[in-house]
Design a protein around this nucleic acid. Structure first.
Lengths: 204, 204
DNA sequence: CCTCAACCACCAAAATTTTAGTTTTTATGA
DNA sequence: TCATAAAAACTAAAATTTTGGTGGTTGAGG
């Protein structure tokens, strides 16, 4: 449910055997990433690794905590990452994005009105012309545009872009938001949520 | 009954063995939270912990006895929280919401008649159109709608929304309630409880 | 030493919240 | 049933808070 809400297309499967069958006769379906619970009825997560590798799908394992043996085994057996339950949704999303990026499966472009963000080129084009953005402005835009219509508090933005250890003013965010609005004419696209933060609005 | 009225979807089970069976062959059913009475026929609450952990469901224990040993045992054995009977419904709801939030299972939308609150977007839509709410109005609405059919006193609302240290008039609440009623046409939905406070009514 | 992005501080402007005064509704008891 | 007091609703203005914009300072990298 959380992944759907975050804008991913999901295909939930709760049985190892079923998963295997889906992987076998996958008709041209592109699967970008597999989140695999180690404990799974039918056929467990580790046994499925072979199938995922054949299908060229990167794997992130999920497991109950304090199972160090599984963790080590999981990573050496070819998984891209490993996350221990219970986990924060945000952490999962961050790790997923990292894996997608590392394996070249991440979205390459994001469009908002007449603005196109090319993640591969690391460039932003508005109405056909390049808009030069500073590093932080770019990061901020990608964060907001990567989760359209989601409200971010200043603290969340600071955590995601500046890093969890940042200790400065939350008003700093405002300055960069101001720059983005001016450079992209996003005065109405980036909506201020009083007392909270900002939201980038777009109907797709 | 209280939880149903408050807008939660419940699955009451009165026997430990039955609960265990439900957890075993849970077919794609998403269970966000378990409220478990320690005293339970069949198999007691503590014995069930293993099953809940396997199913990755957070647990809040309920117990009649004010038994410190049980409390300690309950929390160390992996429960998210513990509440002693008798308890106020409102307190239970608050604790539930905390656990749901902490474990990333909180609701993303709340619906009241033709009004939808999208917590992620931090937006309120009535009959398809956005309704702009001020920060306090939004908080007030979320609080009331998050516990439908539960009566809040003005003091409770002040504590939860304004903070425990607020020193102003309780009449202030009335003004914001008035704004909500006007903006959402909730004149009958938000019921005044004379000399007490307010209650948001909805039968779902 | 120079350059530039980033941060901070300040002030003005905008938005939000509170208070206050008045009217309406509700509760109570004769 | 009616009168009366208390509570709540309504309205608008005052007070406060938050945000936007600008320019100066800092610090890292070349």
């Amino acid at each position: 449910m959380n992944l759907d809400a975050a804008g991913y297309e999901t295909l939930p499967v709760s049985d190892g055997i079923v998963a295997e069958r889906i992987l076998k006769d996958m008709e041209g379906q592109e699967i970008a990433l597999a989140l695999v619970d180690v404990m799974l009825p039918g056929k467990d997560g580790f046994e499925l690794m072979e199938d995922f590798q054949r299908a060229d799908i990167p794997v992130i394992y999920l497991t109950a905590k304090d199972d160090v043996a599984s963790k080590v085994y999981g990573l050496t057996s070819g998984a891209e990452d490993y996350i221990v339950k219970p986990f924060e949704v945000l952490e999962l999303l961050v790790r997923m994005e990292k894996v997608l990026q590392r394996t070249g499966r991440s979205r390459e472009k994001i469009q908002i009105r007449d603005v196109v963000i090319d993640l591969k080129q690391h460039s932003v084009v508005k109405g056909g012309v390049q808009v030069p953005l500073k590093p932080l402005e770019y990061e901020l835009l990608v964060t907001l545009a990567g989760s359209k219509n989601v409200a971010f508090s200043r603290e969340e933005l600071l955590n995601r872009i500046w890093g969890t250890d940042y200790m400065g003013e939350t008003r700093t965010v405002d300055v960069h938001i101001g720059q983005l609005r001016k450079k992209l004419d996003f005065h109405d696209v980036i909506r201020t949520i009083s007392k909270k933060g900002y939201r980038l609005e777009d109907l797709d």
